[in-house]
Amino acid sequence: MNSSAVSLQEIVESTVEAHRGKIGPLMPVLHSIQEKLGYIPGEAVPMIGRLMNLSRAEIHGVMSFYHDFRSEPAGDHVIHLCRAEACQAMGSALLEQHARARLGVEFGETTADGLITLEPVYCLGNCACSPSIRIDDDVYARVSAEQFDELIARLQGEE
């Protein structure tokens, strides 16, 4: 077993242990692993299964049901662009087009430099000041195409 596999095993064990005794701990466990690693590696699934007495199919079923869980790493930053009605009423469809063209990706894809993953989201609860996007844990309101470009430029400048 190589060193990275050992550390993954340790991460999974400590995470499962931290949630032991809770009811229905699978979701908190998956969230926690994803917060630590950015995604849930395929090799982690059987480890979780053994420790929690779940089949790989059960874990895969849960991971694939929810939009949030990733089996592949995302970019350094994730942009969630709201596609729901309140944002539609304020031109989110155009912002969506602009974002795809600006980043050169479709929803669910990551830019070639690995910097940004673009995801759809259905409501950020910021509907009085639409259209909205979320970059990592920060929400932005009344986002114009120009402001979107500024935010992207800022992310690129950080690299």
Partner: peptide, 11 residues
């Protein structure tokens, strides 16, 4: 789990 677009009262 306030998911309806146009709602933010719970939030």
């Amino acid at each position: 789990d306030e998911g309806d677009s146009g709602t933010f009262a719970d939030r």
